[in-house]
Design a protein around this nucleic acid. Structure first.
Length: 881
RNA sequence: GGGUCGUUAGCUCAGUUGGUUAGAGUGCCACGUUGACAUCGUGGAGGUCAGCAGUUCGAAUCUGCUACGACCCACCA
């Protein structure tokens, strides 16, 4: 056997086992008729990405789940991959291009640029995958997919064609969210709100044919007035009723526009009159349709004013705003300016202020897709953990709006639409386009635009398994079992995946959705580059080890709650790993390297300590099973932690430890301890795979296929297997604690031997405790040890009462009488209060009538136990000297 | 404007269907290192479960309201 390092060093061990697992293909999953499949889904990280704490959390959760299932005998598949992340990736590459060559994408041209993105993807796309490996994720790497790999792209385009054929995709000129920085349309989900300090400008519009009369409107975007086509007032507004139907002169533009009446206008807001710019505001657009107003687009796609903007043609939108305000003031149209704090729409990517712009784009009709997705959740074909996300899901689907899927980008799936060309090679708008994956006729040119990234992501669960082909893998692994994701992409991805799954495969893509909280900084703020408050998981792995990072993240991952992460928390995991390692080192000191210890220990073993320990293991297996079925991983892990640290290390190992330090434990003892320790390693392995595998391999000589990762998950048998023994041991633990407490309170040095007298509650207990005298002697430095039912309290002793038994520790010359009296009085007080509350219940007729029998009985037991203990303590106090 | 979530020990948080003497980690106090482990052990202090009202025999847990905080959706020019 190799030498065992005194210190646990995660780095070498993690590397060793990761390559062992991959070299022996232990993460591989393939269709196997003898096994049930279990498939897990995770958002494919962006190809531009570096691993952040959110990934680390979700990966830890996923990996724990998949390892448990693998150990439980499922053919467990975690299919990894990356997402091409349209805008994000294009921007990163363009930025690099600018930095290195001083060029933008238009300088290099589309084809060259896309080539560059691919190169970039090949070079950097694997980074996040490597980082996931460092965390220990057991993905089937041979099945890795990319949303723009060949098969996937084909699936995306076929989906477009089939949705088009079904009438669910259409093209049209509508007001869309336009980002002037990225120069593309965006979906509603890609637009965020930002609070800004702005102004409310009050501008007067002179009434035509009416001397000195004018109407005042208020606006936050004065530049849009260039495109005004009306003024709207409320039909009931007495101030303006007489003006309805008249015309006003649009300042700066000398255009005549009508005054119309519309319910939409709020009389009390601003000046009570609204300028209408149908081309640049959603509500104005609708009002414009109602009143047949002209739609005047005044803006170019880069956010500059176009030729419809008169003098301001060519100016940037914000420059134009300044100039227009100045001109209005100069020409006497400005009435007043108020400071005004309001929200503006910004692009979630570029953070630029979004302009609503009329633009010809492609859309998906969502309502027909949303209906089945709603049904699926209502029928519980799909379950949310925690359940409350279901409501969010409903709310979004019930109010769904059509999805803008075309993007004016270069990086992404080209829209499979083809156009005839005229003699100049330009699109011939007079002829119909053709929607087709492949070029229908020579000479036709393909739509320039690409599809929203999520238009490919929503196919992930089945496209990765070979859909639309009929593959064995698809047949076996799909529909999948669980999706692990954060709520930030509930609408972007989760809901759309469900729609796509139902529409294209007639199945929900997964049964369960486990939604994790988001990882925030110590103060609960989002981690971001600009705040510089990010915690790099790789730094943490480097510092504390991957097992420690995983442990910490899962223990903090309570259902439904965000995680406020303080980097010092990782010490918890590191300390735990250290504890496990030392427990192993202790066992190994007593192991003979050549010896083959029994592989399977019969549960029918004699000793109290073993029987108690086995009961604790059984109880934990049961509880863990229960927690896992509801995705309460933190609870499960906490229980395993307590089992390992508190039960196994603090009590079990202390008790099997030989009396003399150079003495060796018996083979039986070692064999049993190894067996129990192995079970603990199995329970812990999904959470802390590396250290457990290392120890597993060192506990015995193993064959290659006897890796812990493929070991059988502990099977629960009976949590009450040794109920009596477990209870007795519990009493012994309490007695020992009370004696330790006496020692500490009375300042008895650890190496001072004490006498212990136990006046047991009954004769049966005398025997039981006497049989286990060694336990007391092992954990307490005891000289004389006496157990009986007729012992009287020696003078000058400290006392305690545990489960009806009196414990006396004679401390002549050492005891501090005042302190001892205080100690007992305090205990009497506590018990009296407790008793009072119990009596309160038992004296209540209604309680006796209404509470279940077991609860009443429990209170009665508590009462009699407390009374016994109390009377004994009171007697001690009365005789106290 | 509509909705969701949170408020439990100094700090960070658990607490499943109402019945526990309300827990953990960390921090704090005392004692303890050649003896697996100081990344540790033993013992201890520390909580009106945000506030108010209600339902109930019984509420940290259910209901309503209030306060504070976070988020989501829709938005008023």
């Amino acid at each position: 056997m190799q030498e065992i390092p005194k210190k646990y060093d995660p780095k070498t061990i993690e590397k060793r086992w990761y390559s062992y697992w991959t070299n022996h293909n232990l993460f591989e999953a393939k269709p196997n008729p003898d096994k049930k499949p279990f498939t897990i889904m995770m958002p494919p990280p962006n190809v531009t990405g570096r691993l952040h704490m959110g990934h680390a959390l979700q990966s830890s959760v996923q990996d724990a789940l998949i390892r448990i299932k693998r150990m439980q005998g499922f053919e467990a598949l975690w299919l990894p991959g990356t997402d091409h992340a349209g805008i994000a990736t294009q921007n990163v590459v363009e930025k690099t291009l600018k930095k290195e060559e001083g060029k933008n994408r238009h300088d290099v041209g589309r084809q060259k640029f896309v080539e560059k993105v691919w190169e970039w993807k090949d070079e950097y796309g694997a980074i996040i995958i490597d980082q996931m490996k460092q965390l220990g994720t057991s993905c089937d790497w041979g099945r890795q997919r990319f949303t723009m790999d060949e098969g996937f792209s084909r699936a995306v385009q076929e989906v477009f064609v089939s949705l088009y054929d079904e009438g669910l995709i259409y093209r049209g000129n509508y007001l869309v969210n336009w980002c002037p920085v990225d120069m593309t349309a965006l979906s509603d989900e890609e637009v965020d709100d930002a609070e800004r300090n702005g102004h409310l400008w009050y501008v007067r519009y002179p009434i035509i044919d009416s001397d000195d009369e004018y109407i005042v409107i208020a606006t936050t975007r004065p530049e849009t007035m260039l495109g005004d086509s009306a003024i709207a007032v409320h039909p009931e507004d007495e101030r303006y009723k007489h003006l309805i139907g008249k015309k006003v002169k649009l300042p700066l533009m000398d255009r005549e526009i009508p005054i119309v009446a519309d319910d939409y206008v709020k009389m009390e807001f601003g000046a009570g009159a609204l300028k209408i710019t149908p081309a640049h505001d959603k509500n104005d657009f609708e009002i414009g349709e109602r009143h047949n107003l002209k739609v005047i687009n005044i803006m170019n796609t880069d956010g500059t004013i176009n030729e419809n903007g008169g003098l301001y043609n060519g100016m940037d939108r914000f420059e134009a705003r300044k100039k227009i305000v100045a001109d209005l003031e100069d020409q006497g149209y400005m009435v007043k300016i108020e400071d005004y704090r309001h929200t503006v729409p910004i692009s979630s990517r570029s953070k630029a202020v979004i302009e609503p712009l009329i633009s010809r784009q492609w859309f998906v009709k969502m309502e027909p897709l949303a209906k089945p997705a709603l049904e699926a959740a209502r029928n519980k074909d799909i379950r949310f953990y925690p359940q409350r996300w279901e409501n969010e899901y409903y709310r979004w689907l019930e109010n769904i709006r059509d999805w803008t899927i075309s993007r004016q980008l270069w990086w992404g799936h080209r829209i499979p639409v083809w156009y005839y060309t005229d003699e100049d090679g330009e699109i011939d708008e007079s002829r119909d386009y053709i929607v087709s994956v492949d070029q229908p006729e020579p000479g036709m040119i393909q739509d320039e635009d690409v599809l929203d990234t999520w238009f490919s992501s929503w196919l992930w669960p089945f496209a990765t398994l070979g859909w639309p082909g009929k593959t064995e893998a698809l047949d076996y692994f799909y529909p999948t079992n669980v999706l692990v994701s954060g709520y930030d992409i509930l609408f972007f991805w989760i809901a759309r995946m469900i729609m796509a799954g139902l529409h294209f495969t007639d199945h929900v893509p997964y049964d369960d959705i486990f939604i994790t909280g988001m990882v925030k900084d110590k103060q609960g703020r989002w981690m971001s580059k600009s705040l510089g408050n990010g915690i790099d998981p790789l730094d943490m792995i480097d510092q504390y080890g991957a097992d420690a990072v995983r442990y910490c993240l899962i223990i903090l991952c309570a259902q439904g709650q965000d995680i406020k992460l303080d980097p010092t928390k990782f010490e918890m995991g590191r300390n735990f790993a250290n504890k496990i390692w030392n427990a192993f080192r202790f066992l190994s000191m007593h192991m003979d390297s050549g010896k083959k210890y029994e592989q399977n220990i019969d549960y029918d073993i004699p000793g109290l300590v073993d029987r108690w320990m086995i009961t604790r293991v059984e109880q934990t297996i049961k509880a863990v099973e229960d927690d896992l079925s509801r995705y309460r991983l933190n609870e499960a892990l906490l229980k395993i932690y307590a089992l390992v640290w508190n039960d196994f290390c603090d009590w079990y190992l202390e008790l099997i430890k030989p009396d003399e330090f150079d003495e060796k434990m018996s083979d039986e003892t070692v064999g049993r301890a190894i067996f129990i320790f192995e079970t603990l390693m199995k329970l812990l392995h999904p959470f802390m795979p590396f250290i457990t595998e290392e120890i597993w391999q060192r506990l015995r000589e193993r064959d290659v296929d006897d890796a812990l990762i493929r070991a059988q998950w502990p099977v629960f048998e009976n949590e009450n297997i040794y109920k009596e023994e477990a209870e007795l041991f519990g009493t012994i633990q309490s007695i020992i604690s009370s004696i330790r407490n006496i020692r500490a309170e009375m300042n008895v040095q650890v190496n001072t031997e004490i006498d212990v007298l136990i006046n047991a509650a009954d004769d049966a207990l005398v025997d039981k405790l006497s049989d286990n005298e060694n336990i007391f002697r092992k954990l307490l430095k005891i000289d004389n040890f006496k157990i009986s039912t007729h012992l009287s309290r020696p003078k000058a002793s400290a006392s305690a009462v545990v489960d009806g038994s009196e414990i006396f520790v004679p401390l002549a010359g050492v005891i501090d009488f005042d302190k001892e009296r205080d100690r007992i009085e305090k205990e009497v007080d506590r018990l009296e209060k407790f008793l009072k509350s119990i009596n309160g219940k038992l004296n209540n007729e209604k309680f006796l009538q209404n509470a279940p029998e077991s609860v009443v009985q429990n209170e009665r037991n508590k009462k009699s136990d407390t009374e016994t203990n109390l009377s004994k303590l009171k007697k001690i106090l009365a005789d106290f000297q």
